[in-house]
C-alpha cells in the first residue's frame, strides 16, 4: 500500500512539476492574474464601497456571496459536530 502510495505521489508530483514550466513567474506584475479582473478591485474599492481594506471589500461585497457560503460551511461544521458527538441528556 505504501509503495503504491509512493508511486502515485511521485507520478502526480512529476506531472505537477512539468506543469509549472508554463506558469508565469512568481511575483510577475504582468501575469494574467494581476491584469484581468483584480485591477478593478484595487482601483475602485474606495469609490464603490468606501472600504480601504480591499480584502474586506472583495470578501464582503464583490464576492459577498462566497462569504455567505463560507459562513454556511462553518455553520454546517458546527451542526455536524452537534449531530455526531453531542449527547443530549434525556
Amino acid at each position: 500500500m505504501k509503495l503504491v502510495a509512493l508511486i502515485a505521489v511521485c507520478l502526480t508530483g512529476a506531472l505537477l512539476l512539468y506543469g509549472t514550466t508554463d506558469m508565469p513567474n512568481w511575483g510577475d506584475p504582468n501575469s494574467p492574474a494581476s491584469l484581468h479582473v483584480s485591477p478593478r478591485y484595487i482601483e475602485k474599492t474606495m469609490e464603490e464601497t468606501a472600504v480601504p481594506n480591499m480584502v474586506t471589500s472583495v470578501l464582503a461585497d464583490y464576492r459577498g456571496y462566497d462569504t455567505l457560503g463560507e459562513t454556511t460551511v462553518i455553520f454546517t461544521a458546527a451542526i455536524a459536530c452537534i449531530l455526531l458527538i453531542r449527547r443530549f441528556s434525556p
Binding site: 464582503a60 459562513t71 455553520f75 458546527a78
Partner: peptide
C-alpha cells in the same frame, strides 16, 4: 450604505464563528 452593509455582515460572521468555535 455598502460600507454599512459590509459591517453588518461582518458582525453576523463574527457571531457565528464565535459560536461555532465554542460549540465544536
Amino acid at each position: 450604505a455598502r460600507s454599512i452593509g459590509i459591517f453588518g455582515i461582518e458582525v453576523g460572521v463574527g457571531v457565528t464563528v464565535m459560536a461555532v468555535m465554542i460549540s465544536i
